[in-house]
Design a protein around this nucleic acid. Structure first.
Lengths: 215, 215, 215, 215
DNA sequence: CATGAATGAGCATTCATTCAT
DNA sequence: GATGAATGAATGCTCATTCAT
C-alpha cells in the first residue's frame, strides 16, 4: 500500500541505530497520520526494523510517541539556544527570535502536526515527560531576560509579561502554518506559495516589533 | 434449537432529529478523539441511534466529518456576522472582533480540536466542501472593509494587508487555546486558570491594537 | 493446519444457530487446548462463522468460555435430573447415581477437560456465572434427600454428610478419567481399554456401596 | 550517532543454582498459568536469570515443563517412600497412606494444577519421560503388597485390585482439591475453610477404611 | 555460561461498512 | 427510515525462539 519505505534497513545488532531509525520513521508517520491514525506496522516497516523492536525499545505505541515528542522538542530548543540571543541588543534579539520561529515552523511541518495532535489529546504524553519539562527551563528564562533588557533600554513596552509575549510571537507564525490548509480555503489563496510566505515572514516580524515598541 | 422471534416493532423517529443528534454526538467525539480515533459505533450510541443511520444519512465516516466541519464553521461565522462590525468605528470594531474571537475559542474547544485535526489531514474535507467556501466570502470582505476604514481614518497603519492581519489577530488567540496543554507544561503554569485567561484576553486586545496603531 | 472443521457453515442471518455453532466449536476447542491455548480464530473457523461474531454475541473469549461452562454444566445436570432418583429405593438410587456419573464422564471427556482448566484458573468464570449457581440448588437437595432416606431406612451409615459423600462418589470416577493419561503411565496400563473401563465401573459402584453400608 | 559500548562484565553463577531457580520459578508459573498460559519471559524473570538460559539448559518450553513434572513427581514419591508402609500393620498402613495423600495434596496445590494440565494435554510430557516411568515401579509394588497383606490377614476385602483401589483412595482426596473452586460454587461453601478441610480429612480416611473392611 | 538484541508468526480484539428485513 | 446481524481487513501487542558476542 505504501510506496515510500525510504530509510535503508537499520544495520543489525546496533540498538542505537535501531532506535534512531524508529524515531525518524515514527516522527514522519505520527505527523502524517496522527497518533490514532499512525500504524506501528508502517513505522517499523519504513524504519526497516522488526515491528517487535518498537515494543522492545519503547514499550508501546505511546512510549514511542512520547520519545518522538521529546526528540522534536529537543531539536527545536537546541537550535533556539544556538541563536545566542543574550549577545544581541534586545530589539534585534526579538526580531531574530520571531524570524527563527517562522523559519523553523516553515521548515518543520511535522513539528506542528505532532504538537497539534498532542494537544488534541490534552498533552498527556508531554505532561508525563520529565525531559520535556527539563529542557524548557532555560528557554523560558532566556525570553524573560531579553524582554527585561528591552524594557530597561526603553525600546520595549513595559506592559507585557514574558509568557504572553512569547505565546503571541509564536502564535502568529504557528497559526499561519498549523491552519494553512483551512485558511487557504477560506481566503481562496495558497498560503504556502513562495510569495505568500515571504510576505508573511515580513508581516510577523513587523507586527511583533510594532506591538512591542513604546508609544 | 434456534428459536425465531417475531419482527421487532420499528421505532420511527424524526429524521431531522436523527441528523441533529448525530452531528452533536459526532462533533464531540471527533473533537475528543480526532478523525482517526473517533468510532462510528460510539457516535451512534451516544446519539442514541442505530449505527447504520450514519451511513444512511451521511454515507460514510468522512461524510459525517465533513458535515460536522460545515456545522461548526457555520455557527462561528454566523455569530461573527451578528457583531455588525460595519456599524462601529474601526478601532472599536477591531477590538470587538479580537475579543469575540478570544471568547469564542475559549468557549468552544471542540472547534479548535476539529480544525487542528482537519489541518493535520491537509484540509481535505474542507477543501471539498462547497458550503464552507461559500460562507467565507462575506467574512473576508468584512475584515477588509474594516481595515480600510481604519487606514482611511488614520487610526491604523497602512502597511498591513487584510489576510495577514486577520491571521495574526486570530492566531494569537487560537494558538493560546490550541496549544494550551503543551504550553502549560512548558511554562509550568495552567493557562486555563481563570486569572490567566483574563490576563490573556487583555493581552491579545492590547497587543493587536498596539500593532495596528500608527507611530 | 487443522484438518477438522467438521461443523457445516452456520446458516446466515440466524443468530441462534450462530450461537449454537459457536458453543459447540468452543466446547471442543477449549477442552482440547485449554482456555489459554484455545484460539478464537480456530473456534470461529470450525463453527463456520465470522470471527467477529464471537465478540458480537459473547463479548470476549472469556465470555464465550463462560457460556460454554454454563452449557456443559446445564447438559449434565439436566440428564442427572432425568434419573428421577427420588422414585427409587435409596441404595438403588445411589448405585444409579454413581453409575451414571461414571458413564457420563466416560462419554464426555471434554467436560472433564473444561472443569480441570477452569479450576486451574481458580474457578473465576463459574464464580461469576449466576446460571451455574442457580442450576445447582435442586441438585444438592436431591443428593441430600437420597442420603437421608437411606439413613432412615437403615441401609446407609449415618455418619456421612451429603457434600462429602457426593464429592467422594464423584471423585472416584472423575479422577480415573481426569488423570487417565498420567495414571496409565504410572501403572503401565491403558486405563481407557475396554476391559479396564468395565472393571472400573464395577469397582466404583461396589466401592461406594461398601463404604455406605452400615456394619 | 550510535555509540558502541564495551562488552558488559559477564556475571557468572553456579549452573546448578540456575537450574534450580528455573525449576522453582517454572513450577509456580506453569501451575498458575498452565502450560499454554505460562510465559518463558516471566519464568526467567522470576528466576532472576536470562531468558536464553531456559533454552541453554532445557532446550525448549516443553523441555522445561517435562523437567518440572519429573521434579514434582519425584518429590512426592520420595516422601511416600519415607512412610515405610511395609513396617506397619495393613489397616494402619492404608490409613497412613490415605492421610498422607490428603495432606500432601492439601499442601501442594501446584502439584494438582500441573497434573491436571498435563492430563488435558493427554499426558504427552510424562509419556516421554523415562524418569517418571522408572520412579513408579517400586510405588506400585508397595501398594500391591500392602493390599495383599491386609487380605491375607482378613482385614481387607479380597475383591479389590491394587490399581483400582489406589485410584479410588487417591481420587477422593485429589478431586476434592483439584475441583475445589467449582465445587465451592456448586455447594455454596468454601471447601478450603479450615473446618471443612478437617472434616474432609476424617471423611476420606473413614470412607476408605469402611470400603475396605470385609462384611 | 550468560547476555541484550532481534525475529516472525500469531493473537485477541476492533472497526468501518454492508446486508437482509 | 430504521434495525440487528454479519463481514473482512486491520491493529496493537505477544511469544517462543534464535543470533552475535
Amino acid at each position: 500500500m505504501s510506496s515510500r519505505k525510504a530509510a535503508p534497513p537499520a544495520p543489525r545488532r546496533d540498538p542505537a541505530a535501531t532506535r534512531d531509525a524508529l524515531i525518524a520513521a515514527a516522527t514522519a508517520e505520527f505527523a502524517r497520520m496522527g497518533f490514532a491514525g499512525a500504524r506501528v506496522d508502517e513505522i517499523a516497516a519504513s524504519a526497516g526494523v522488526n515491528k517487535q523492536l518498537v515494543y522492545y525499545h519503547y514499550g508501546s505505541k505511546d512510549g514511542l510517541y512520547q520519545a518522538v515528542l521529546e526528540a522534536v522538542y529537543g531539536a527545536l530548543r537546541e537550535k533556539e539556544r544556538a541563536l545566542s540571543l543574550e549577545d544581541l541588543p534586545p530589539a534585534q534579539a526579538m526580531a531574530q527570535l520571531v524570524g527563527f520561529s517562522f523559519d523553523y515552523l516553515s521548515a518543520h511541518p511535522e513539528f506542528i502536526s505532532l504538537l497539534s495532535d498532542e494537544n488534541r489529546q490534552l498533552g498527556q504524553h508531554v505532561a508525563s515527560s520529565q525531559p520535556v519539562r527539563r529542557m524548557h527551563t532555560p528557554f523560558v528564562e532566556m525570553i524573560d531576560r531579553t524582554l527585561q533588557r528591552g524594557v530597561a533600554a526603553g525600546v520595549f513596552r513595559p506592559d507585557y509579561d514574558a509568557v504572553n509575549l512569547y505565546i503571541s510571537m509564536a502564535g502568529i507564525s504557528y497559526f499561519y502554518f498549523s491552519n494553512r490548509h483551512t485558511l487557504s480555503v477560506i481566503f481562496g489563496k495558497r498560503l504556502d506559495a513562495k510569495v505568500a510566505l515571504a510576505q508573511r515572514r515580513r508581516h510577523v516580524v513587523e507586527f511583533t516589533l510594532n506591538a512591542l515598541r513604546p508609544d
